[in-house]
Amino acid sequence: MEKTRTRSEHPLNDLLRTDRIPHIWCPGCGIGTAFSSCLVAVKAAGLDLRKTVMVSGIGCSGRGAGYTKLDSYHTTHGRAIPFATGMKLANPELNVVVFSGDGDLFAIGGNHFIHAARRNVDLTVVCVNNLNYGMTGGQAAATTPSMAKTTTTPLGNPEPPFNLPLLAFAAGATYVARWTILHTRDLTKSIEEALTRRGFSFVEVLAPCPTGYGRRNREKPLDSLKIYQERTITRNGANPAEVTLDFHRGITLGKFVDLERPTFLDAYEKVCSLTQ
C-alpha cells in the first residue's frame, strides 16, 4: 500500500483515499469508471470541495463513499437519499451527490427515490445500473432485463425491468440522463451539468458486472462494452417512455429531460414566509 501511495501521481489522487486503493470492485467492473467520471465531474464543476458531500447506500456501488476524500457518508441500505435530503435541508449550502447502485436506489430505496424526485430536493443522484444484485451473488433485481439469466432466474428473467429514466421523469425529476461507462466523456459532462444545476438530477450509468451478471449471460467485460458500442443510440431529448432497457431492440442514451421547477427548499421557504 505504501508503494502505491508514493509511486503514483494519478490526477484523481487528491480526491481519493489512496490508502484504500486498489478498491474491491472486480476486474472489468464498471463502477470504477462511473466513480472516476463522477470525481472528474466534481472537479470540473468547480464546486467548493469543502462543501461537497458524497452519500452512498449499500452494495458494490455503495462503497464509493468510502473511497473519496470528500466528506462522505455510507448509509443504511436504500436510505442514501433520505440521509442526503436531511443533509441538504440542514445545510442548504452543501452540494450533495448520491452515488449508489440500482438495487439500493430502486429496489429497497425505490420509495425514497420517487418522493425525493417529487419534492424536487436539490440533489444529484448517480445510479450505477449493473442489472443485478452484484454484491450478494448476482440475483435478479428490479433492473434485470427480460429473459436475462441470474442466480435466481436460471432459465431467464420472466419480469420486465424498470425503465429508470421514465420512473425518474414521472416522479418529477428535473434532469434525467442515461449513459454507459463506454461513453465516459458524455457521462462526465452530464454529471457535471447535473452538479451545477438546481433541482433533483438523475444520471443512470449502465455498467458491466462481469462476476454477477456477465458470467451467467456469457458476457465477458469487453463483450459488454461492445454491446454498449454497437447497440446503443444517442438521442438527446428522447421521450423517456420510449427508452426501455432492452438490449435486443437497442438502448437509447442521452439527456432526456432538463426542466426548471421550484425546488423543495424554495417551496418550503415560500410556505414559511406566509406566517409572517
Partner: peptide
C-alpha cells in the same frame, strides 16, 4: 486521456 477516463482502477493516466 481516454485510457485515463475508462480505467476503473485509477491505474493509468
Amino acid at each position: 486521456h481516454y485510457c485515463e477516463t475508462i480505467c476503473p482502477d485509477f491505474a493509468i493516466y
